[in-house]
Design a binder for these strands. Sequence first.
DNA 1: CAATGCAATGGTAGCGCTGTCAATAATTGT
DNA 2: ACAATTATTGACAGCGCTACCATTGCATTG
Lengths: 343, 343
Amino acid sequence: MGRKRTKSGKIRLTEVAKLAGVSPITASRFFRNPDALSASKRERVDSAVKELGYVPNLAARALASHRTEVIGVVIPSLTNSVFADVLRGIYDSSEQSRYSIQLTNTRYSILQEEKLLRLFRAQKPAGLIVTGINQTTESRAILETMDCPVAQIMEIGDSPVDMMVGFSHYDASFAAISHILQQGRRRIGFLGARMDPRVQRRLDGYRDAMKAVSLFDSNLVVTTSVPTTVTLGGTLFADLLAQAPDIDAVFCVNDDLALGVLFECQRRQISVPGNLAIVGFNDLEFMASAVPSLTSVRTNRYEMGRHAVTMVIDAIEGRRPQEPVLDLGFQLMIRESSTSQTA
Amino acid sequence: MGRKRTKSGKIRLTEVAKLAGVSPITASRFFRNPDALSASKRERVDSAVKELGYVPNLAARALASHRTEVIGVVIPSLTNSVFADVLRGIYDSSEQSRYSIQLTNTRYSILQEEKLLRLFRAQKPAGLIVTGINQTTESRAILETMDCPVAQIMEIGDSPVDMMVGFSHYDASFAAISHILQQGRRRIGFLGARMDPRVQRRLDGYRDAMKAVSLFDSNLVVTTSVPTTVTLGGTLFADLLAQAPDIDAVFCVNDDLALGVLFECQRRQISVPGNLAIVGFNDLEFMASAVPSLTSVRTNRYEMGRHAVTMVIDAIEGRRPQEPVLDLGFQLMIRESSTSQTA
DNA sequence: CAATGCAATGGTAGCGCTGTCAATAATTGT
DNA sequence: ACAATTATTGACAGCGCTACCATTGCATTG
């Protein structure tokens, strides 16, 4: 008993084929592999598609082909502005392709991540982009049976599930501390919030850099698992001052904290960089226009998103990169807040 | 070249039904309308699903039912931190439902918006969330033939396509200016960047509030179509000072600009609020911890996202709100930057 | 010239699920 | 007790597309 609604206007591939005078399968090929058609048929199908305003039914296509044109993305946070740039890169790249993005958010929950990965595996995405390299054993197992290209982003490490795009948080942190040391500062505090694996590695870099010059002191480190805010930067800085009143520099694991520290310094009349150097991480836009301008570690987040999508799509289409790990590096943006007043 | 993969392990609804000893259609109903099953069958299907680890094939479901469980979201920018909060609300709400989010980005392009809406219409989403109320005639026509619930978010107006969640940018701006006037300031500058329709309405509110007390002066207004940054706030403020050196307050259409103005004041040794009051818009988190703390208009962005999804889902499931327009209002967060020094 | 290869095209047969409506079982009222 | 009503359930027939393989036509080869 027919649902007449079906006929209501919906153009099917069959109609296109009929108008073009070809078989449905040829019309189908027009979309998936136009080069396989002769020029004449290609043109006939093309104009039939345009004349009828045909739009493929993606559900039917997915059902018949056992594939989707969806790239899954798993990130830990929508709030963290770091991911905004990555996402922009991801969406920008995907828009030029046939693939669409399915974005999901773990809220830094390991369990949520496992659940999402399981969901993705069941839905057979064409590709997958996940954040970080510290998946649980379970998550890793799911990723390895994913049956599609997988890119891990934000950081790089030794054993990619498949591909990686990122940079070394350890090296970036180490470089930042080295710079501060070079400026003659000795008592460098460390401020960390929401200690996810990447932030943890920044702490490792800090610790090793300090230990290398025998300047490490656990009183210089203040961390919390609370999510980052500018206000929190001020609070943590106050804690740090209480623990180590003689600090002459602060390294913050992100720029929001650094801005909070700057404000707290203004509140307490601590001169920056006179009495205190401040260095942040990520190089958000405001760092350059703060007073004094704030030194930070620039990370190539937008490019990370773009490359991740490009690599995944290339892999889907059989063009695997010869080098599965892409290091996008970082740049130390040295500004007033960490250079001597005289400079 | 067989792809035997098809059979490889995939559990179909038929298998579940067989194990549960029911017909496939009954098993199907278990997912879509469990209340229609008797308790005994429901349990049998439930355990069969669990035992086999069955996961529904969404493509098949969409093809057979002519519906999807996708809610489309159209926003103009992924960078603008205002949308991060809205998106968080949207994703948080959707995760508790069966619906998934398909996010798209117009980059403030009218044409891109039309293209995306056309695409969505063809894919028959279960619901749609779009930004703003100023669609083109063409976009509006597409929305009206969308055949699914549509929520317009970020602002409210008189003729919703279907539903609306937002607040009045005009009123918010008017209220902010009234507050500044109340503080005895007379020469209130206006700084605007990326003049999208909502920002435009904030300008309208400013203009009317100033005209109401005969204090409007076009020299007090500086706008640009360039996207907002903190740095731009400083630049625009410099332009404003050049045009109107006697200003005693600045109203910025967003908090990034306000922060840029604050930094520029620090650079130029302009005392805030002594010589200049600063008021921003959105109440981003840093506003409260700046020195001095910065007055802003708090908008309920997270709630906006949550409500939009909830309303759309309710409408999809037949529970239409009696009132299609939801005004989430705003709150003026009065802080040091706009109050007299003596206060 | 037949044998061979290859490019272009089409026929057949589902992909896994649900809409429709009919059929059956359970419940109620009088 | 029996008809009328309601709750459950199932049979059937596709949804619109593509994988697979077969077929056709034509150029190439020895």
